[in-house]
Simulated scan of single mutants.
Amino acid sequence: MDLFDSPFVHPAFIEAADGRICAGPVQQVHQGGYRFHYENKRSAPSLGASYATLWGHGYGPIGGCFLDLDGRHQRNEADFRSGLKALIDKAGADFLIWPYFPIEAREFQWLRAFLVDHFGPSASMLMRRAHQRGFLDCRTAQDAGLTLSRNKRKLMGRQRRRLEEMGAVRFVSTRDGLDDGEALEAFLKVEASGWKARKGTALSVVPALNAFAHDFLPPLLAEGRARIDLMMLDDHCIAGLVSLQAGRGLFSWKTGMDEVYKRFSPGVHILHHLSLQALADPDIDYVDSLADAGHPVAEHIWGGHRAYAQLFVPLSAYGRVGSLSHSAAADGKQQARYWAKRLLGRI
């Protein structure tokens, strides 16, 4: 899983997100294909130590910082180290927080070596929130590939037949000529037709998120770095999936479904459809679900997993104390949230 690609450091995504899904301003350091984006912060849990948080959040849950815009796709340690050095000098922080770092990537070892070379043999990192997420390896038909049990295949077949009794079922995509604007509006509508709208997380019901989606998706769709797939019942969209592409990876960013058809699992069907297309596409090596561990859809049909963690990287003795305090406070907050949910019966 030596992958460090990220669609979330594309300039259109960063510009649309700054001030909308993050407080900003987002600072930038570029070196080769590495694009380090971060925010400078200081807080009470860090005991006053300043820190820089690398780009990584709920709308861009991957800490890879490589984006190959010129087609060379050359990752090398010299560029990574040079970018890190420039980031540290520019940020002037006591420690770094790096969410969603893909710890199986070679950059994890490069980061360790960089710290030892620059801060001595006692240099270390803290690792928190380690987890694995659903991952489809398109290069193999076993283990990390598409894995559907016999019972799951039979269930999906029955669901498809029941839907076809109600109308014509088809999949349409911006990759096959579907108008980009039409596809985006159809997706936003179907995403807002269920629980996401009630919870207030659907893109179209939050003005800042709606503007964010309308700003960054059109240019990525035009460049072929994004796609929207829709599952149609006659002329009615019952499920939609927005995916982003970086390098040889595809990232299933947002999904939505019409809850009227929930019993037919349209979300499963559209992800299965995308999976089959990715497996047949010679330009795609993998699909990252971008989902939490234990996702009820991706992990039922994909056999692979990819490991991530949040890294706390001290850059000084003061930074080491501040990062320990900050990580401990974050752990305590997470535990409090967990027990609150248990008391409320939500888990």
Rank of each mutant, 00 (worst) to 15 (best):
R346D: 12
D234P: 03
G60H: 05
Q109W: 09
S43H: 12
A328W: 13
G157H: 02
L126T: 14
G71P: 03
A52F: 02
G64L: 07
M166C: 05
L163N: 09
V172G: 00
G167I: 03
K152R: 15
K199A: 15
V313N: 05
I14S: 08
A291R: 14
L188P: 00
L163Y: 12
R161Q: 14
R158M: 05
V313M: 00
G303L: 08
V242S: 04
E191F: 08
L126N: 13
R139Q: 11
E182N: 11
G145N: 04
N210G: 09
G267I: 05
S289Y: 09
I284W: 02
L220I: 04
M231L: 15
H37V: 14
Q159A: 01
L188W: 03
S50C: 10
G33L: 12
E104A: 15
G247K: 02
K333V: 08
D5F: 10
S327G: 06
A222P: 06
P11W: 05
Q277P: 09
R150T: 15
R153L: 05
F66G: 07
D283V: 12
H118T: 15
G32Q: 06
R81A: 13
S325M: 01
F216A: 02
A211K: 00
D176S: 11
R263F: 00
A226T: 00
Q334C: 06
D117N: 06
K333N: 04
G83D: 14
P314T: 00
S193Y: 08
M232I: 07
Y338I: 14
A168E: 14
D234N: 06
V287R: 01
A211E: 08
F13Y: 09
S6Q: 08
R42L: 11
G319F: 11
A293D: 15
K152C: 11
S46Q: 06
L244T: 00
K333W: 00
